[in-house]
């Protein structure tokens, strides 16, 4: 009796979820496979003529292969920023957790500021220009690090709290220098939380639109999200190509999601339990 009711509620929830959460993605996929005229009708139908591959080639080659450049830029920025975020974030989290001092209050204040305060964009551009880093990928990488640090430090700090201090001391007695304790004992033990930080931050940085919009204007530096945004205004009528672009932008997070579902959820729900 009870299980039958559960089955029906389940089926109803399933149907609603599919309509609300799956249909939009199906729409993206179908439109991406249509011809220009077919797509412009905006209908939710199977394509009259499947041309997924041709649309793919058209989008990739559009505007002098800009999408490839965009993927290259986004990848470089994401990989560099995430690698340094992990390293620097873990180092701060480590000292913050292991060495209680007056500085900790200050560092915590910075973490809270980093999580809450919206970046002051124009003054940031002013600083970047002064450093000669405005409109450069290096500048963009550093910005992403600055904005992602607070999250990374918090996650690393709470994970490091679970690693017994005895290990550090055993390493000290074994003759390890401070950097050896960190790199040879602590860092390898941070693997689970490191995976979480990598995955969550990669998706955040890859999907970031606002920051490249401000700090990385210019054709040669386009990122994936910026190209998509520009396509919207430039190919306003070619919905098949626009949606092919959306499809392509959606695939990387989808792949990451399939493999790292658990780590993503863990990272994003951290703090929900203990408050």
């Amino acid at each position: 009796m009870n299980s039958r009711r559960q089955l029906f509620t389940g089926l109803a929830a399933l149907a609603a979820t599919i309509v609300i959460f799956v249909l939009p993605f199906l729409f993206i996929f179908l439109t991406a496979a249509k011809t220009k005229q077919d797509a412009s009708l905006l209908t939710f139908t199977l394509p009259q003529q499947w041309q997924l591959w041709q649309n793919f080639m058209d989008v990739v080659s559009a505007r002098d292969y800009m999408l490839l450049l965009a993927y290259f830029n986004s990848t470089v920025i994401t990989v560099a920023a995430v690698a340094l975020l992990v390293l620097f974030g873990a180092m701060v989290g480590y000292v913050l957790q292991r060495r209680p001092s007056r500085w900790n209050t200050l560092i915590f204040a910075c973490v809270m500021i980093g999580l809450m305060v919206p970046p002051a964009v124009v003054p940031t551009i002013w600083v970047l220009q002064w450093l000669d880093l405005f409109k450069t990928r290096t500048g963009m990488v550093l910005i992403q690090i600055a904005y992602g640090l607070a999250f990374a430090v918090l996650l690393f700090r709470s994970f490091i709290a679970t690693i017994p201090r005895d290990l550090d001391e055993a390493a000290i007695i074994d003759g390890a220098k401070p950097w050896q304790i960190f790199f040879r004992v602590i860092l390898p033990l941070l693997k689970p939380v490191t995976v979480t930080v990598i995955v969550v931050q990669s998706i955040a940085i890859f999907n970031d639109f606002t920051n490249p919009l401000y700090y990385l204007p210019g054709r040669e530096n386009v990122t994936v999200q910026l190209t998509l945004y520009n396509f919207q205004s430039q190919f306003g009528t070619e919905f098949n190509l626009l949606f092919m672009n959306i499809l392509l932008v959606t695939i990387p997070p989808l792949i990451v999601f399939i493999f790292f579902n658990r780590q993503i959820v863990a990272g994003m729900t951290a703090g929900a339990v203990k408050g």
Partner: peptide, 11 residues
């Protein structure tokens, strides 16, 4: 350094 220069200073 990164946080100070690119976040605190602009703020």
């Amino acid at each position: 350094v990164i946080f100070t220069v690119l976040f605190l200073v602009p703020t």
